[in-house]
Design a protein around this nucleic acid. Structure first.
Lengths: 226, 226, 226, 226
DNA sequence: AATGAATGAGGGTTCATTCAT
DNA sequence: CATGAATGAACCCTCATTCAT
């Protein structure tokens, strides 16, 4: 996660981050501020200059930590995504009682509530974020993703007996697709918002959580029904 | 559809398109060329100047037909989308024999093969296209979409007895989400392509048609199983 | 003047103005509409397309009557200016009783009240209007101006005994300069308006009529005092 | 003043102006070049790109120093205007002997000789320059103007006993108006120049200095004569 | 390591004017 | 005469990134 949970006494960062520890803290600070700006606006509207200013750093300094804007946001996506994986794993691990497809669907959908920045970022992944990034960073991301997919996928397979080996991961892939698509349908542009408020437009209005729950439930029921 | 299938003898357009017919032809020409450029590159890379040049028109002329770049691409999306709806309806209407969920899933997924420009455009709909467009155009689009959704949805309900009223449209909504998401996963950036070719990355490789068929089949099975 | 005083029954103009009479009417119509637009906005904001539209004519048609935008507005200036000369002459001719410098100053200043379009146009004369105009039109304007200056100047010399031959015209020249300058000082840009409303800014606030009266009175007193 | 009178050895500017001193120098350089271009042409013809090029800077760099074209030219006007105020004050302070209205008029008119760029800019003040400028800049300008008006006005009142308190400033306001107006009348467009050279057009030919001297003399005589 | 001044390609849009119809 | 489709030059400003200090 971006914000560090352990609330240790915050020393002000030294002017120059010489120790790795300080560098890491500065890196997190930048991500934090980028998240703040992105939450309030959009990728295009977040200027590197603003990120720097909010971090109380010079523009050039930000580029010392992230070589490109895309790299910065890919790192942000990573932070948010793997935090979410952890959270989901936590929910799947801790819950007592029997797990049904519907329960999993609900759990997953709820775990994504308030994760708008994450899901919006997900939609930019291929189109934007991976466009201007070093192969190394791209690979690092993919490796970690693969691992998380494997781990969480396995957990799902444990919870839902009807899922065969590898099907947990695949379910997560479909989940990813649905999340990306539904997020875009739910976040309507201002011009469209009005139009969609007309009564007969109801079928086009998308409530992210509700629709995702529904789709996942159906998907899992379909897997169970084989 | 943008390209006119019926290869009727092409009269050269007059220098000035004064008749509605000629204007419509010129409009289609512009869309055609925009599609050509977009297919080969990306939204950001298509310059209005290039569209004009390829259409053998002056830059200003393009703006006579489409007030903004967004309007042009929204129009293009409309053309492609409604052509696809028609195509799908054709496939669903003409096919003889019994329709199962799986057959529908396959039909739908196949109808989307080679529709990369359409599905990529779909992903830009809210984020980009509806950002700089008149409420009138936005509304027009939504109205036509609603209608198409209703019509095609009803057809689906006819074909698949287990779909209740309105569920056809909803299925199409989920389809939209899946398509948007899967398209993005399938179109990997050049940097990523290499990474994904590593053998152990197989689970992250997405074959659009295959994955869509799979997801839709499962989804429909889930609906049938209720 | 632009609007024709004699309120004869308005026949709708024929589609094609074949007779000189009709052409003249059409010309006046265009000027009228241009004035309407200019009064509400500014030279730059008046588009030739808008003038055409408000005149219910095609864009090209306007150019049949005025070869350039500048020519149109120069013609408008002429119409307003000579109408004003006539008005002023009327006031100077009709008034009974003794004429003093102050009375003339007041009369002139009042004759310019509500003539904002005229005085604003005057400020554009050299900078803008005469830039893209045929020598013929420029000359015609100057000739007529010279004549009006002579006529009204002579009238002034009649009214004010202390004005020698030619001094009436010269006074009008200085008047022109003052009007142009004061108009610009009186029409403050929105940003400036606020600033000028601060109490201590009073000395920078210009009331057109008051300041013009004052300056002209002083000027005439200066001429008298020689 | 834009050009620095004291010809101290010009150190070449460093590639990056980091010290305030260097930044100020660069700012002046830009103003200088803008002035050069403006003197030779007109506001509309001066492109920001040209200013940059002549300053041997990148286009963007100019915008680092002046947020808009209007801001640049307002700053230029300020520089020229306040330099002129200083010059005028110098002339009014240094001259020995008795000051008459006529002497003041001549002094003022002569102080404006060769100040064509300044006076032309003055005519753009409300119409153009204050249109796209921050309230802060607009206010700063007005405050400084007020102050200069007060100071120079007081000096005038000292020199000319017949001027009451505040009348010096008011005289400067009328001066401003006259200058703006006369400048426009003196700068005839190429088309008009020819026309005006015809012998009988003499009354319309305006010699800026001569006419200004005349008008100011009369104005001051009028004030004295009360 | 940090700074922040400098870069400069990039691009959609406007609108007076022309001219084919 | 009238039309209105077509033209195309013109142009300010943004902002990710670089690099001198």
């Amino acid at each position: 996660m971006v914000s560090n949970g352990t609330a240790k006494a915050k020393r002000a960062l030294p002017l120059r981050a010489r120790r790795d520890e300080d560098k890491e803290a500065r890196r997190r600070l930048i991500l934090q501020e980028a998240l703040g700006l992105y939450t309030a606006t959009s990728y295009a509207e977040v200027k590197m200059a603003d990120v720097a200013e909010r971090s109380r750093l010079a523009k050039g300094t930000v580029f010392l930590y992230f070589p490109t804007k895309e790299a910065l946001f890919l790192a942000l996506l990573e932070a948010l995504l793997f935090a979410w994986f952890e959270k989901l794993e936590g929910l799947l691990s801790s819950g007592a009682g029997r797990w049904t497809g519907e329960r999993v669907a609900r759990t997953v959908a709820e775990s994504l509530e308030g994760q708008e920045p994450l899901t919006r970022l997900l939609a930019l992944l291929q189109t934007v974020l991976e466009q201007n990034v070093t192969p190394a960073q791209a690979r690092g991301f993919k490796e970690r993703l693969l691992e998380a997919l494997g781990r969480t996928g396995a957990l799902l397979e444990e919870r839902l007996a009807f899922l065969g080996p590898g099907e947990g991961g695949r379910f997560l892939l479909h989940l990813h697709a649905l999340v990306t698509g539904l997020r875009q349908m739910a976040d309507v542009a201002p011009v469209t918002r009005e139009v969609l408020e007309l009564p007969h437009m109801a079928p086009l209005r998308v409530d992210f959580t509700r629709e995702l729950t529904e789709a996942l439930t159906t998907l899992l029921r379909g897997l169970e029904a084989r």
